[in-house]
Design a protein around this nucleic acid. Sequence first.
DNA 1: TCAAGCTTGATGCATCTGCATCTATCGCCT
DNA 2: AGGCGATAGATGCAGATGCATCAAGCTTGA
Lengths: 152, 152
Amino acid sequence: MTEKAKPSPETIKAWARLMRVSRQLMERAEDALKEGGLPPLAWYDVLHELAEAGEGGLRPFQLIERTLFAQYNISRLLARLEADGLVEKLPVADDGRGQTIRVSAKGRETRRRMWAIYGRSIEELVGAKLSPDEQSMISALLGRLRHPPTAD
Amino acid sequence: MTEKAKPSPETIKAWARLMRVSRQLMERAEDALKEGGLPPLAWYDVLHELAEAGEGGLRPFQLIERTLFAQYNISRLLARLEADGLVEKLPVADDGRGQTIRVSAKGRETRRRMWAIYGRSIEELVGAKLSPDEQSMISALLGRLRHPPTAD
DNA sequence: TCAAGCTTGATGCATCTGCATCTATCGCCT
DNA sequence: AGGCGATAGATGCAGATGCATCAAGCTTGA
């Protein structure tokens, strides 16, 4: 019943490493994109989801479910993507409030160019550092930390 | 010689989990602090370093070395901390450019209150989810991903 | 000694985030 | 049908971040 409040040193260390390393790696991936004159990672996430969704596109609230973005964040991010011609907003037939977001050809192309850089970063930062076994080990351990414990 | 450019699915999965889980957990820790009416995590990091440094305090550039903050970020963060009376800036005897930052009593107290919440979050989010062995396993794996490969 | 260049820290500006709130539409329930 | 709460998405405002640059003080070397 008594909720244990104080984390052990080992727990603290795992936490600290998780926070520090993830930020470092993220930053390095961002830097690589910037150096290539490409948009930030957040754009990739959205373009990726939309590309997977295909011609049907996605509603903004579906993007929110699939990513970790807040509602207002998606709203403005989509505005920027639209301004850059990477996505288009279509009215939705049976819901006057909603819209469907679809990637444009330019959006697909941008995503492709981002992936060339981003994928290379991932390979350098993780693929080259851990064996396949270690990679699945860390995936499994991280999976246990998800909240809430999701499938996959 | 040929740099392998394309990450394997397993590598991508490890990357995706790392990014997603770390953000989720960070967010939950932030939320807990906010709910307790306490300052954000960034403040904790700085107060923590300063508390460890003791009476001697630290120079801003030393904080930059010890944390992942950018220079301008530290500069403004310290301004906010000073405005809240959590730290004091002292001139440095042998370097007219510099300053020494020292935690105030109020700063120590704030850190203590933050840790009560933050520590509990860490315990809930990591301590309760992984066994000690798993925790040291994930620490070790994350350690391999650091850049550059540092000691400890 | 003193000019050139480096280090320390601050700051103006643009962008991005977080929070709260707003508008418009929908679905339900009576 | 009509009204009410819920849902979809946008937005005003304040605070935070990133980038470039600045000012002040230090160090070095001819």
